[in-house]
Structures are given as C-alpha cells and as structure tokens.
Amino acid sequence: MGRPAKAKINLDALRHNYRIARQLSGNGQVMAVVKADAYSHGATACASALAYIASGFAVACIEEALELRAAGIKQPILLLEGFFEPSELAMIDRYRLDTVIHHQHQIDALVAHPLSHPVRIWLKMDSGMGRVGFSPDAYRAAWEQLSGLSCVKDIVLMSHFACADEAESNHAQQQLVTFNAYTRDLPGERSFCNSAGLVALKEARGDWSRPGLLLYGVSPFTEAPHGIESKIQPVMELSSAIISIKDIPVGSSVGYGSQWMAGRPTRLGVVAIGYADGYPRHAVSGTPVSINGCRVPLVGRVSMDMLTVDLTDVPNVQIGDRAILWGPDLAISEVAQKADTIPYQLLCNLNRVPVQYEGAYMPDLVNSDGAGA
C-alpha cells in the first residue's frame, strides 16, 4: 500500500559478510560498525541479526549505544568518538560500554569522575588521519595516565587509516610504521583496520578490526578491485516503481532546468523516488536504473520525489514494474560514481523509505551472554 519506494535488507547477506570479515581477521576479533543506524540498514535489526556471532558493535555516540542496549544487545559496544561530556560517564558505567579516549579532557573527566565498574578504554593515536587522537609523542603519557586508574581494566591501542582504500598511496603504510614505533613496547590489544585496511593490509589486522561498509556488501575500493567484490553480498536493495509512461517527440526537454532533451522519439518512464528519499540529486543522465532485469538510463535532473528514465529500448515495461536503484543487480558504487560521491553517503542519506527485512533475526540468541566467536 502507498508509495512504492522501499529498501529491502537481507540479513542473511549481512551475516555472510560478517563471516567474511572474520575470516580476513584471522585470529583477531571483529567489531561490527553499526553507527548512523547501521548506514541506514537499521542498527537494532542488524545488531540483533549479528548478535550471536559478533564480537561487539561500534557506534558513534552514546545515544546509539543505548538504543542497542534497549534492544537487548549484550555484546561489547564501543563509543567511537568517546564521550562528549563528563555526565555521560554515568551511562558508560551503568551500561558497561567501551569508550574511545582521544583527548586529554576525556582523561581529566575520567580522573574526576571515577567509574564504579572497570571499563575498557580504546586509546586513539592520530598516526596520520589528522582528526582526533593523541599525537604519537603524547601517546605514551596518555597510556601511562590511564593505566594508573583503578577503573580502567584494559587499554586497546587504536588508530585509524586515512588512505587504506587508495592502492597508489603509501600513506597507510606510513601510518602503520608510526603506530608500531610509538606502541612497540606497550602492552595491550591493538586495533587499526577499517574495511579497506582489513582487506588490503594484512600486516595491520591486529587483535580487533572495525569494518563498516564491508559488512553491508559494498567494496571500500573505488578503483582497483581487490577480489573482495566477488565474495561479499549487497545487503540493501533500494527500489521503487514506474508510475507514469509517456511518449515524447524529438526536442522535448525533461525535468527541472530542461537540461536533457530527447534526441529521438522517446518513451519516458517516471519512477517514484527522488532526492528526498536519499537518491542523489546530482546523478547525471545515463546513470543506470534496472527495470525487469534491463538497464535503462536516467534522464534529466532528479527531483525531490521522482526521477525519469528512458524506456525506449525496453518497450515491454508497464506502469507498476519495479525499478531497482541499487542492490545485488546494480552496484551502489556505480551509482555513487555517476553522482560524484561515495557509497557511504548514499547509504547514510537514505530517508523516508520504508525498510523491509529478509532473513531471521534469531531473537532467541540476541540476549546471549556470549560475545560471539
């Protein structure tokens, strides 16, 4: 009923991709990144689907963590940005959350507000990303200060790659050299790899990896393939339906700004999806849309609620036929390239579209005390 746009989420594919990530990690553990509502796949649904196999979950902030705890998730949950205010420490304590520490003000807050339960700290080094994290020179002093606190039970040594998805760059290797040099004799588990690092940098996999995009069946590499593309399975299929078909003559324009004009008699189809749903407004004419197993080109500007496609070469399409915007049969990375953006943004911008799930949640195992193997 209602508007036909929807996102179908295959939880079996999600579990398949997690197992791929776990295989890549070797003896290490895999912290599934489910921030930003699991990249619009639904954080509670995805965490519930992974709860019996996942070593833990990573989120951006405490609001996301509490949502998972309320859904019954018992596995470790890591706050990737740490806490923003000292008042959050009470919730970290109550809900037994792991937290990143990336700045001295967070250590000062922990000293001033000691926790009643021991907490695992992920101490972040800025090894070359240039965002948050202690400088290499300041890292040891931060580690020593934290290791002296009775409420700190473990310290995971952590950093984050800036260019692991760029095969031509040696920046990731330089970051790894820096990280290893400044942590060489520090005890504790280590965590460096995002999705790209997990695939491309075997030497950096360490004790904990933190894949995100890979779990949702999207390659983190925009250029040279790494073989991972054939192993992972897209989790989301974004689709809608044809709601209008009309024939237009040569020279007729289509869409806002009249940027596209028919160079031949054209059979035009209108699909009920647009930039208010998260489909990229700047996708250019020629961006593929899959209808009845055939690729047809987008034509004209994407509107808020609709887009138009050229159906001239697929005359059997009818009103009501499904239009696949991305999914197993049409890579989201291809759509992102046509819109001069990245798959992360397309997924995270998804809005207003009803989400439907396939694959068992296995809810009898969600409340398991085990952290998964």
Score class of each variant (00 low, 15 high):
residue 316 N to T: 10
residue 357 Y to V: 09
residue 354 P to S: 09
residue 109 A to H: 09
residue 161 F to V: 01
residue 200 A to M: 05
residue 181 A to D: 10
residue 335 V to P: 01
residue 109 A to K: 02
residue 267 R to Y: 10
residue 181 A to T: 15
residue 324 I to Y: 09
residue 220 P to K: 01
residue 125 M to L: 03
residue 140 R to Y: 07
residue 146 L to V: 12
residue 70 A to Q: 14
residue 274 G to I: 04
residue 235 V to M: 08
residue 178 T to S: 15
residue 47 A to S: 13
residue 105 H to A: 13
residue 131 R to I: 10
residue 8 K to W: 01
residue 314 V to P: 10
residue 359 G to K: 01
residue 67 E to V: 05
residue 1 M to L: 10
residue 340 D to F: 09
residue 37 D to R: 00
residue 173 Q to V: 03
residue 1 M to T: 07
residue 256 Y to N: 06
residue 82 G to P: 09
residue 87 S to E: 11
residue 247 D to H: 09
residue 280 P to W: 03
residue 358 E to V: 01
residue 24 L to G: 08
residue 161 F to Q: 12
residue 6 K to S: 15
residue 187 P to V: 07
residue 295 R to K: 12
residue 154 D to G: 07
residue 245 I to D: 04
residue 337 Q to D: 05
residue 237 E to Q: 10
residue 9 I to F: 14
residue 272 A to R: 07
residue 274 G to N: 03
residue 165 D to S: 15
residue 279 Y to H: 02
residue 118 P to M: 05
residue 92 I to G: 04
residue 23 Q to C: 13
residue 205 R to S: 09
residue 295 R to C: 11
residue 334 E to A: 13
residue 67 E to N: 04
residue 45 A to E: 14
residue 351 N to C: 15
residue 342 I to T: 06
residue 304 M to S: 15
residue 284 V to K: 14
residue 222 T to P: 02
residue 22 R to H: 12
residue 278 G to L: 04
residue 232 I to P: 08
residue 329 D to W: 00
residue 224 A to V: 02
residue 236 M to Y: 02
residue 143 W to Y: 15
residue 260 W to E: 08
residue 238 L to D: 03
residue 123 L to M: 04
residue 173 Q to Y: 09
residue 160 H to T: 07
residue 86 P to Q: 09
residue 239 S to D: 04
residue 64 E to L: 05
residue 363 P to V: 05
residue 143 W to A: 12
residue 290 S to M: 14
residue 210 R to T: 11
residue 328 P to V: 01
residue 258 S to T: 00
residue 109 A to Y: 12
residue 105 H to Q: 14
residue 235 V to H: 06
residue 305 D to Q: 12
residue 154 D to K: 06
residue 180 N to H: 10
residue 221 F to V: 00
residue 153 K to V: 03
residue 53 I to F: 05
residue 239 S to R: 02
residue 88 E to R: 03
residue 318 Q to Y: 00
residue 68 L to I: 05
